[in-house]
Amino acid sequence: MTPSPAVVRPDQELITQILDELDLDHTLDAEGDIAIATPELTVYFLFGSEGDLFTIRTFYDRHYSVDDKPMLVSALNEWNADTMWPKVYTFTQDSGVLRIVGDSQLYIGAGVTREHLTTVVAHWVRYAIKFHRWLTDRLAFETD
């Protein structure tokens, strides 16, 4: 019988190691969260207050007006219906500017294997970027 792989409890140190192994440049933001920042998007690696939820949250840096919301909701619904992650939604700032946010979450309360966590991080970051490209193409089609 093959032994089960070791289970780990993800934390910031482990996520930093994984990002280094994947050659993904990252930093700590003002709140101490790990982030990958590009001109188009910022990806955050977050842990729930109870330590049982790992979230990769992406803030897309393009801003939209409230008038764009119907078109955006239609595009986001299409993405959410066709893909598993990230799940994307609009966020309206106090100024009335719309932003798009993407979330991917993993329950880690019982631990996960390091291999699974590495795969999840790699795929989620890749799909956060893929969504940005997809939305850019999709909205270009809408405006043509």
Results as ranks from 00 to 15, higher is better:
L46G: 02
I56C: 10
N77L: 11
A75W: 11
L41T: 08
G51Y: 04
I56S: 08
N77A: 08
A35H: 07
T38R: 14
A37E: 14
N77W: 12
L72Q: 13
P39G: 12
D52K: 00
P39K: 09
F54A: 05
V66N: 15
A37P: 01
F45V: 02
G51F: 04
F47N: 02
G48A: 07
V66T: 15
I56Y: 04
P70E: 02
V43W: 00
G51K: 02
Y64F: 15
I36T: 09
I56Q: 06
A37G: 08
D68G: 08
T42M: 09
T55L: 11
S49F: 12
A35R: 07
Y44C: 01
T38M: 12
V73A: 12
G48D: 02
K69P: 04
I36R: 11
T38A: 13
T38V: 05
W79E: 07
T42G: 00
D67T: 10
A75M: 05
G48F: 01
L41Y: 09
D52N: 01
S65A: 14
Y60Q: 03
R62Y: 09
V43L: 02
E40A: 09
A35G: 04
S49C: 06
R57F: 05
Y44T: 03
E78T: 13
H63N: 08
I36E: 13
Y60G: 01
E40K: 11
M71R: 06
T55G: 03
